[in-house]
Design a protein around this nucleic acid. Sequence first.
DNA 1: ATTTCAATTTGGAATAGTTCTAAACTGTGT
DNA 2: ACACAGTTTAGAACTATTCCAAATTGAAAT
Lengths: 142, 142
Amino acid sequence: MAVSKKRKTLKVQEAGARLRAAGLRPTRQRVALAQLLGAGHRHVSAESLHQEALKAGMPVALATVYNTLNQFTEAGLLREVVVGSGRSYFDTNTDAHQHFYCEDDGSLVDIPGKTIEVAGVPVPPRGMTIERVEVVVRLKRA
Amino acid sequence: MAVSKKRKTLKVQEAGARLRAAGLRPTRQRVALAQLLGAGHRHVSAESLHQEALKAGMPVALATVYNTLNQFTEAGLLREVVVGSGRSYFDTNTDAHQHFYCEDDGSLVDIPGKTIEVAGVPVPPRGMTIERVEVVVRLKRA
DNA sequence: ATTTCAATTTGGAATAGTTCTAAACTGTGT
DNA sequence: ACACAGTTTAGAACTATTCCAAATTGAAAT
């Protein structure tokens, strides 16, 4: 048989523990999604994660995937990456880091945290605080 | 009567000239929109520009506004700024510069071109070239 | 184990922003 | 004035996401 490249998933236990730690009730669906997201650094869209869950034999409604991704993001388990209107990516790497974004195929590639240095960020307008400085390096096929 | 703050618009002539220079046929609608966009630095959405055109007595279909904004962007007359999914802004300032984005009210404020310095941008993946390095400083109400 | 109830999930409808389509119209060259 | 490619238009279609009200479920109490 052909060598199948299977993605590693988290154990149910560990996924549940992470959810509890984040203050989220570990329901069947949330645990399933946390398992899929849990291992390694990944970039997913609601749609792609939904497909993945179905293929993995963990049926979840698309609306639940949306809810869950948003809750995980609020809880600090994920980071939302905005690259283009109409496309939302969620990044399992919540550390400070940046991205390459290829406009041709919509793919996203990490740039490690310490690589890019941003200097000279001005003081924000009155009554505002900086939440995050986001850098996206937009690419085109050469 | 109250002092009305009226936005300056371009003369028809000048708007037409700009369009020709960009290789776009100066139709009535394109001229009208170019007039509205022409003076000063602005951030518009398709919807906001559409409203503005209607109020200015220059009826244009929303679809035309979309077409036109996209054409202007392709022609280098505008720059698209991506800040959040579902929201597309077009910036009349096409020089290299960055933005503050306030997540609370969706507003966009320019950061002048030379203010922010980005260092350490890595070499792009094989066969790719950097089209633009985009920096968005996300703000929250303090 | 059973009961209880708020939290969660669900499928479908609803919404928002944008693009598409086919027919009507218009700018420009002759 | 004429012709025609380019443009505009209204509305349908589409995509990504959120909303909704009903059904289900996890966890705490009995």
